[in-house]
């Protein structure tokens, strides 16, 4: 992405906001939706737009787990670390995903295809353990189900 392209896309995002300070988190969310993560220039531009300091933008964005500062993969693989998933063995699912993708939570595959994250709880505890790929939620996971879901051949 060129710098002009980045600026144009961000300007488009910002047209939906009025520039009030309390819009910081929604603006960061919208920017991350647009770019997949929060590049430094984007955060600086947001600071100018909302007339707040850059360090404030950095402080707020690093406080919330949702925000990423490195490019993430096209497919987000998220595993639930909730209590029900913990006692129902999500760590074995996580091991399998790590093995399949060759990355640890918080990392992205070098081809930028997959990112792996763990999430506090998805609230689908009754179907623990739970894995989410993109927006698809997979319940009652077993290690065997991992590979077919990741390569898209699951039934």
């Amino acid at each position: 992405m060129t710098e002009t392209e980045l600026k144009e896309r961000l300007t488009e995002v910002l047209t939906h906001y009025t520039g009030q300070k309390n819009e910081l988190i929604p603006v960061l969310q919208a920017a991350q939706e647009q770019f997949g993560y929060l590049p430094a220039e984007v955060m600086q531009e947001i600071a100018r737009f909302l007339r707040i300091s850059e360090s404030t933008v950095y402080g707020v964005s690093t406080f919330y787990a949702q925000f990423k500062f490195q490019p993430t993969g096209k497919k987000k693989v998220r595993l639930c670390r909730g209590t029900a998933c913990h006692v129902r063995g999500v760590s074995r699912i996580l091991d399998e995903v790590e093995k399949q993708l060759g990355i640890k939570p918080g990392e992205t595959t070098s081809d930028l295809e997959y990112s792996l994250e763990t999430i506090a709880c998805f609230g689908s505890c009754a179907l623990a353990p739970v894995m989410v790929v993109g927006n698809n939620v997979y319940g009652r996971m077993t290690p065997k189900k991992v590979a077919p879901i990741l390569d898209g051949t699951e039934q």
């Binding site: 430094a40 955060m43 600086q44 600071a47 300091s53 850059e54 360090s55 950095y58 690093t62 406080f63």
Partner: peptide, 16 residues
């Protein structure tokens, strides 16, 4: 400067 990150990782930081 502002506080960045949280919990045990929280620290005083400049932008980036």
């Amino acid at each position: 400067i502002d506080l960045a990150f949280r919990g045990y990782s929280a620290r005083v930081a400049t932008f980036g």
